[in-house]
Protein backbone atom coordinates (compact mmCIF):
# COMPACT_ATOMS: atom_id res chain seq x y z
CA UNK A 1 0.00 0.00 0.00
CA UNK A 2 1.09 3.46 -0.80
CA UNK A 3 0.21 6.90 0.55
CA UNK A 4 -2.71 8.42 -1.32
CA UNK A 5 -0.83 11.50 -2.46
CA UNK A 6 1.87 9.38 -4.02
CA UNK A 7 -0.55 7.00 -5.70
CA UNK A 8 -2.57 10.01 -6.83
CA UNK A 9 0.38 11.72 -8.44
CA UNK A 10 1.45 8.51 -10.17
CA UNK A 11 -2.08 8.08 -11.48
CA UNK A 12 -2.33 11.67 -12.70
CA UNK A 13 0.97 11.33 -14.55
CA UNK A 14 -0.18 8.05 -16.05
CA UNK A 15 -3.49 9.57 -17.12
CA UNK A 16 -1.73 12.55 -18.70
CA UNK A 17 0.61 10.27 -20.64
CA UNK A 18 -2.23 8.01 -21.75
CA UNK A 19 -4.40 10.91 -22.89
CA UNK A 20 -1.51 12.35 -24.83
CA UNK A 21 -0.90 9.00 -26.48
CA UNK A 22 -4.55 8.34 -27.22
CA UNK A 23 -5.00 11.81 -28.70
CA UNK A 24 -2.08 11.34 -31.03
CA UNK A 25 -3.31 8.03 -32.42
CA UNK A 26 -4.18 8.16 -36.11
CA UNK A 27 -7.91 8.74 -36.57
CA UNK A 28 -8.06 6.14 -39.30
CA UNK A 29 -5.97 3.33 -37.82
CA UNK A 30 -4.33 0.97 -40.24
CA UNK A 31 -5.44 -2.16 -38.46
CA UNK A 32 -5.71 -5.52 -40.12
CA UNK A 33 -9.31 -5.27 -41.32
CA UNK A 34 -8.47 -5.37 -45.00
CA UNK A 35 -6.08 -8.30 -44.70
CA UNK A 36 -8.41 -10.36 -42.56
CA UNK A 37 -11.39 -9.76 -44.81
CA UNK A 38 -9.38 -10.43 -47.95
CA UNK A 39 -8.34 -13.86 -46.72
CA UNK A 40 -11.56 -14.67 -44.89
CA UNK A 41 -12.67 -17.04 -47.64
CA UNK A 42 -9.55 -19.18 -47.13
CA UNK A 43 -10.13 -19.53 -43.42
CA UNK A 44 -13.09 -21.92 -43.65
CA UNK A 45 -15.48 -19.71 -41.64
CA UNK A 46 -17.29 -16.50 -42.51
CA UNK A 47 -17.25 -14.82 -39.10
CA UNK A 48 -14.06 -12.75 -39.13
CA UNK A 49 -13.56 -12.92 -35.35
CA UNK A 50 -13.70 -16.71 -35.40
CA UNK A 51 -11.36 -16.70 -38.38
CA UNK A 52 -8.84 -14.64 -36.40
CA UNK A 53 -9.25 -16.65 -33.20
CA UNK A 54 -9.13 -20.13 -34.64
CA UNK A 55 -7.20 -19.73 -37.84
CA UNK A 56 -5.16 -16.58 -38.46
CA UNK A 57 -4.11 -16.33 -34.83
CA UNK A 58 -5.11 -19.84 -33.80
CA UNK A 59 -1.76 -20.28 -32.09
CA UNK A 60 -2.71 -17.62 -29.53
CA UNK A 61 -5.84 -19.59 -28.80
CA UNK A 62 -3.86 -22.81 -28.40
CA UNK A 63 -1.77 -21.18 -25.70
CA UNK A 64 -4.87 -19.61 -24.21
CA UNK A 65 -6.59 -22.97 -23.81
CA UNK A 66 -3.38 -23.91 -22.04
CA UNK A 67 -3.78 -20.89 -19.74
CA UNK A 68 -7.30 -22.06 -18.84
CA UNK A 69 -6.07 -25.53 -17.99
CA UNK A 70 -3.15 -24.16 -15.99
CA UNK A 71 -5.49 -21.87 -14.05
CA UNK A 72 -7.77 -24.69 -12.96
CA UNK A 73 -4.79 -26.92 -12.12
CA UNK A 74 -3.39 -24.06 -10.08
CA UNK A 75 -6.68 -23.60 -8.24
CA UNK A 76 -6.87 -27.33 -7.59
CA UNK A 77 -3.36 -27.31 -6.22
CA UNK A 78 -4.32 -24.57 -3.78
CA UNK A 79 -7.63 -25.51 -2.26
CA UNK A 80 -10.41 -27.98 -1.90
CA UNK A 81 -13.75 -27.20 -3.40
CA UNK A 82 -16.31 -25.23 -1.44
CA UNK A 83 -19.77 -26.54 -1.96
CA UNK A 84 -22.27 -23.75 -1.66
CA UNK A 85 -24.33 -24.08 1.48
CA UNK A 86 -27.49 -24.16 -0.56
CA UNK A 87 -26.39 -27.38 -2.22
CA UNK A 88 -28.52 -30.33 -1.33
CA UNK A 89 -31.31 -28.20 0.07
CA UNK A 90 -34.95 -28.42 -0.80
CA UNK A 91 -35.75 -26.38 -3.89
CA UNK A 92 -39.41 -26.37 -4.77
CA UNK A 93 -38.97 -23.64 -7.37
CA UNK A 94 -35.40 -24.15 -8.48
CA UNK A 95 -35.58 -27.87 -9.16
CA UNK A 96 -38.26 -27.72 -11.87
CA UNK A 97 -36.62 -24.63 -13.33
CA UNK A 98 -33.29 -26.40 -13.60
CA UNK A 99 -34.94 -29.37 -15.27
CA UNK A 100 -35.91 -27.06 -18.09
CA UNK A 101 -33.06 -24.56 -17.99
CA UNK A 102 -30.06 -26.89 -17.89
CA UNK A 103 -30.81 -28.78 -21.11
CA UNK A 104 -31.73 -25.49 -22.76
CA UNK A 105 -28.46 -23.90 -21.70
CA UNK A 106 -26.46 -26.83 -23.01
CA UNK A 107 -28.38 -26.66 -26.25
CA UNK A 108 -27.78 -22.92 -26.47
CA UNK A 109 -24.07 -23.45 -25.88
CA UNK A 110 -23.96 -25.89 -28.75
CA UNK A 111 -25.89 -23.46 -30.91
CA UNK A 112 -23.48 -20.63 -30.11
CA UNK A 113 -20.58 -22.87 -31.05
CA UNK A 114 -22.19 -23.71 -34.38
CA UNK A 115 -23.28 -20.18 -35.24
CA UNK A 116 -19.78 -18.91 -34.42
CA UNK A 117 -18.69 -19.91 -37.89
CA UNK A 118 -21.03 -17.36 -39.51
CA UNK A 119 -22.06 -14.83 -36.89
CA UNK A 120 -21.06 -13.64 -33.43
CA UNK A 121 -20.56 -16.69 -31.23
CA UNK A 122 -18.01 -19.41 -30.82
CA UNK A 123 -16.36 -21.71 -28.32
CA UNK A 124 -15.70 -19.05 -25.71
CA UNK A 125 -19.22 -17.68 -25.77
CA UNK A 126 -20.66 -21.19 -25.72
CA UNK A 127 -18.21 -22.16 -23.01
CA UNK A 128 -19.33 -19.23 -20.89
CA UNK A 129 -22.94 -20.45 -21.15
CA UNK A 130 -21.90 -23.97 -20.31
CA UNK A 131 -19.94 -22.70 -17.34
CA UNK A 132 -22.99 -20.77 -16.22
CA UNK A 133 -25.11 -23.90 -16.54
CA UNK A 134 -22.61 -25.74 -14.37
CA UNK A 135 -22.73 -23.03 -11.72
CA UNK A 136 -26.53 -23.21 -11.72
CA UNK A 137 -26.37 -26.96 -11.36
CA UNK A 138 -23.97 -26.66 -8.45
CA UNK A 139 -26.17 -24.09 -6.74
CA UNK A 140 -29.14 -26.37 -7.22
CA UNK A 141 -27.24 -29.26 -5.69
CA UNK A 142 -27.17 -31.20 -8.94
CA UNK A 143 -24.48 -33.38 -10.38
CA UNK A 144 -22.44 -33.61 -7.24
CA UNK A 145 -21.62 -37.25 -7.81
CA UNK A 146 -20.12 -36.38 -11.19
CA UNK A 147 -18.34 -33.29 -9.91
CA UNK A 148 -16.57 -35.42 -7.33
CA UNK A 149 -15.07 -37.68 -9.96
CA UNK A 150 -11.76 -35.95 -10.34
CA UNK A 151 -10.49 -38.40 -12.94
CA UNK A 152 -13.46 -37.75 -15.24
CA UNK A 153 -13.22 -34.02 -14.72
CA UNK A 154 -9.50 -34.03 -15.50
CA UNK A 155 -10.18 -35.73 -18.81
CA UNK A 156 -12.82 -33.13 -19.66
CA UNK A 157 -10.51 -30.31 -18.67
CA UNK A 158 -7.58 -31.41 -20.80
CA UNK A 159 -9.73 -32.34 -23.79
CA UNK A 160 -9.47 -28.87 -25.30
CA UNK A 161 -5.69 -28.75 -25.09
CA UNK A 162 -5.19 -32.31 -26.26
CA UNK A 163 -7.48 -32.05 -29.29
CA UNK A 164 -5.89 -28.72 -30.20
CA UNK A 165 -2.39 -30.17 -29.90
CA UNK A 166 -3.32 -33.23 -31.92
CA UNK A 167 -4.84 -30.97 -34.59
CA UNK A 168 -1.67 -28.88 -34.61
CA UNK A 169 0.55 -31.94 -34.97
CA UNK A 170 -1.69 -33.51 -37.62
CA UNK A 171 -1.85 -30.32 -39.64
CA UNK A 172 1.91 -30.21 -39.48
CA UNK A 173 2.17 -33.72 -40.88
CA UNK A 174 -0.38 -33.01 -43.60
CA UNK A 175 0.68 -29.58 -44.80
CA UNK A 176 4.04 -28.92 -43.20
CA UNK A 177 2.90 -25.96 -41.12
CA UNK A 178 1.80 -25.77 -37.51
CA UNK A 179 -2.00 -25.30 -37.48
CA UNK A 180 -1.98 -24.94 -41.27
CA UNK A 181 -5.22 -26.69 -42.13
CA UNK A 182 -5.39 -28.43 -45.52
CA UNK A 183 -7.00 -26.02 -47.94
CA UNK A 184 -10.77 -26.09 -48.05
CA UNK A 185 -11.06 -28.07 -44.79
CA UNK A 186 -10.56 -25.19 -42.41
CA UNK A 187 -14.20 -25.18 -41.33
CA UNK A 188 -14.19 -28.83 -40.24
CA UNK A 189 -10.91 -28.53 -38.34
CA UNK A 190 -12.11 -25.41 -36.58
CA UNK A 191 -15.37 -27.09 -35.60
CA UNK A 192 -13.57 -30.11 -34.13
CA UNK A 193 -11.12 -27.94 -32.18
CA UNK A 194 -13.86 -25.64 -30.96
CA UNK A 195 -16.11 -28.50 -29.83
CA UNK A 196 -13.39 -29.91 -27.61
CA UNK A 197 -12.49 -26.42 -26.43
CA UNK A 198 -16.16 -25.72 -25.63
CA UNK A 199 -16.30 -28.63 -23.20
CA UNK A 200 -13.03 -27.72 -21.52
CA UNK A 201 -13.86 -24.02 -21.30
CA UNK A 202 -17.29 -24.68 -19.85
CA UNK A 203 -15.93 -27.15 -17.32
CA UNK A 204 -13.05 -24.87 -16.38
CA UNK A 205 -15.28 -21.87 -15.78
CA UNK A 206 -17.76 -23.92 -13.78
CA UNK A 207 -15.03 -25.52 -11.70
CA UNK A 208 -13.28 -22.21 -11.09
CA UNK A 209 -16.51 -21.26 -9.35
CA UNK A 210 -16.04 -24.16 -6.95
CA UNK A 211 -12.66 -22.67 -6.12
CA UNK A 212 -10.75 -25.87 -5.50
CA UNK A 213 -10.29 -29.54 -6.19
CA UNK A 214 -13.28 -31.78 -5.70
CA UNK A 215 -12.61 -33.60 -2.51
CA UNK A 216 -13.51 -37.22 -3.02
CA UNK A 217 -12.73 -40.02 -5.37
CA UNK A 218 -10.83 -40.15 -8.58
CA UNK A 219 -7.20 -39.37 -9.15
CA UNK A 220 -5.21 -38.32 -7.25
CA UNK A 221 -6.62 -40.23 -4.31
CA UNK A 222 -4.80 -38.55 -1.52
CA UNK A 223 -7.35 -36.44 0.28
Amino acid sequence: MMPRWMAGSFSVCLLAALSWAVWSLPTAPKGLTAESLARLAESGVTNPVTAVLLNFRGYDTLLEVGVLLLAIVGVWSLRRADWPRTAGGDFTMLAPFLRVALPLLVLAAGYLLWIGAFAPGGAFQGGALLGGALVLAVLGGRGRHILNRRDLLAIGLVLGVLVFVVAAALSMLLSGGLLQFPSGQGGVWILVIESAALISIGLTLGLLYLGGRPSKGGLPRHD
Binding site: P29, G31, L32, T33, S36, L37, P48, V49, A51, V52, L53, F56, R57, D60
Partner: peptide, 8 residues
Protein backbone atom coordinates in the same frame (compact mmCIF):
# COMPACT_ATOMS: atom_id res chain seq x y z
CA UNK B 1 -16.96 -4.27 -40.50
CA UNK B 2 -14.93 -3.48 -37.40
CA UNK B 3 -11.38 -4.82 -37.25
CA UNK B 4 -11.66 -8.43 -36.04
CA UNK B 5 -8.07 -8.66 -34.77
CA UNK B 6 -8.44 -6.43 -31.68
CA UNK B 7 -11.79 -8.07 -30.98
CA UNK B 8 -10.13 -11.47 -30.95
Amino acid sequence: VPDPVPRA
